[in-house]
């Protein structure tokens, strides 16, 4: 068997692998850029908190649909994630708790509730599927949903790109030109939750956030230009998605963690060999040229 056929045969031979591949590529295309914006908005851990917060909603959807159904779990997850985001925002405005603190409280509450719901009504295997995903369950309706979320994300990001970035750099300026920062903040949170939902089946609720933050970190290590960063993030997410699926097929391991580990491997490469990486620092002295 040639190397080439090794690389494509899983997808030629099995329909579920093809569907998983399409889903993973779509997730990577939108999650990467979303992660970059999350990181630049200093909300890296909000993504993490959100991925835990969606669990009770996803669990209830899982129960009602009687299995891994992306539409049911997605809707539940969306409701749970947005509730946590809204409640945290509300609490931080009304009380002296900062938004990250109220986020932490609500997502832990949400996570505990989710694990309890799953363990009351399902087996441990179900819980593992919800947390870490299973590519076997990606059906056509799930593909449409994932593709739709990716398309929406990229379109909406293109539309709110300028106000979103200005709100992050200079919120006073955005208000002065008549923009409502909170509106764009909320639209962005909505996009984050949608992308987490989109990663449910192939990656699982806990791993989906890895598809956002690791590509974003890779992009930040490799570039200082926003447009380049967005492209690097999308590309590295897509590459890890593909390589992760191939590896998980041949090694017979869960796809979610494999994809995220491949992404982590690229991250470590970027850490070592990137323009700001460790090795360069050791080899050549810091340049002071303008």
């Amino acid at each position: 068997m040639t190397l080439f056929s090794l690389l494509i045969s899983p997808f030629v031979d099995y329909g579920f692998m093809r569907r998983a591949l399409v889903a993973t590529l779509a997730i990577g295309l939108s999650s990467g850029p979303v992660g970059v914006l999350l990181m630049l908005r200093r909300m890296s851990l909000v993504g993490d908190a959100m991925s835990h917060a969606v669990l009770p909603g996803a669990a209830i959807g899982f129960m009602i649909a009687g299995g891994l159904s992306l539409p049911a779990m997605g809707l539940g997850g969306l409701i749970a994630g947005l509730s946590v985001a809204l409640l945290s925002g509300l609490v931080s405005r009304v009380t002296s708790l900062r938004e990250d603190a109220s986020f932490a409280s609500f997502y832990l509450m949400s996570l505990a509730l989710g694990v309890m719901i799953v363990s009351l009504h399902g087996s441990n295997l179900d819980l593992l599927h919800v947390l870490f995903g299973t590519i076997l369950a990606v059906d056509n309706s799930a593909l449409f949903l994932v593709g739709g979320i990716t398309s929406c994300t990229l379109l909406v990001l293109a539309m709110v790109y300028r106000p979103l970035i200005v709100e992050c750099i200079d919120p006073g300026f955005l208000r002065a030109v008549g923009g409502r920062g909170a509106v764009f903040h909320f639209i962005f949170l909505l996009i984050v939750v949608l992308n987490l939902v989109s990663g449910f089946q192939t990656l699982g609720t806990l791993m989906a956030v890895g598809m956002m933050m690791l590509p974003a970190a890779i992009a930040q290590l490799l570039s200082r230009r926003l447009t380049t960063m967005l492209m690097i993030a999308a590309a590295s997410a897509v590459v890890s998605g593909y390589v992760g699926l191939v590896l998980s097929y041949y090694l017979s391991v869960a796809s979610g963690p494999t994809i995220i580990l491949v992404c982590s491997f690229i991250y470590i490469l970027a850490l070592l060999f990137g323009p700001n990486g460790f090795l360069w620092r050791m080899v050549r002295p810091v340049s002071h040229n303008l």
């Binding site: 992050c168 750099i169 200079d170 006073g172 300026f173 200082r224 926003l226």
Partner: peptide, 15 residues
């Protein structure tokens, strides 16, 4: 036209 205090601006943003 409004000039905000420089401290209110996130200068680490890649722009």
């Amino acid at each position: 036209g409004y000039l905000p205090q420089a401290s209110s601006i996130d200068r680490s943003f890649p722009i």
